[in-house]
Amino acid sequence: MSQEAVPVRRAGWRFAGLVVLGGVLALTVVASVALGAQSIPFERAVAGVFAPDGSQSALIVQELRLPRTLLGLAVGVALGLAGALMQALTRNPLAEPGLLGVNGGAAVAVVSVIALLRVDDVLVYVWAAFAGAAVAAVAVYLIGSRGRAVASPGRLVLAGAAVNAVAVALTNGIMLLSPRSFGGFRFWQVGSLAGRDLGTLLRVLPFLGAGVLIALLLARPLNALALGEDAGRSLGARPERTRALGAVAVVLLCGAATAAAGPIAFVGLAVPFVVRALVGPDQRWVLPYSALLAPVLLLAADIAGRLVVPPGELETGIVTAFLGAPIFALMVRRGRVPKL
């Protein structure tokens, strides 16, 4: 029977797709290093990365573009995986760390730490962001899933809107309490890759790495979970453990991403949506594809933000909102959302 052959052939096709996507990501990275208010020719950009000669273009690459690009890469991977994980865990195509208030919760915590405790250390921000993200995630899930076995997609988004509104009100209140730090907050609050140094990235990298590892290891258990609680259990899955580990991974990924770049919405929504349309529901493919496609989108949004209003820039978070919100609205309009 051809039942054996089909998955093998499909797997080969999907693997080829993954390689192509990796190539696209590499090109996007190069473009992100080369393009901007002052665009740098391709060879000089590459030379600036690997053999800096002290020229102006090499300086731009080393000091500005490279840290920014690496940060975009890391944050993109984190947001894409977090979105895919949340959608799989809640079995809800509208789940997303920005919409569900997880990034908002992390943002409140970071702003509070900066304004009230007056610390200036990325590592402290990261821990604060974890705490905020965890509280928000738990709150949204409890509110959205109360009363029924599975949280309904629309209600979860609305619970997220509620938590987000509280988070925004608190963030604003804290920001306004200290006019001196307001100048920095207003940029951070938008979500941006600009102006971060490599130190920021290195500090959050261990947490991101742990989150990515857990997420990728969860692919099989998530597939079992997708069959439903009982069927999954009879196949040897342990739903509680999968959910708990998944939640830990989401908090690690969102907390680290938000601490490094500020709250960025809609990347985690759009990417898994596109990926599932490409490769189907198998999490062993959805997760790696999301991890590669999300940084492509985030870096593309960042590059677009650099180019649309020269010599100024649009923050990445603003570009993703403007790209992502219409996609979300169209999903809702087309009735992509299962029965609400």
Binding site: G98, A265, A325, P326, A329
Partner: peptide, 14 residues
């Protein structure tokens, strides 16, 4: 409501 939530998110970014 959901379309409105999307519009709100976009306008908040603006």
């Amino acid at each position: 409501v959901l379309v409105g939530v999307a519009a709100a998110a976009m306008l908040e970014a603006l």
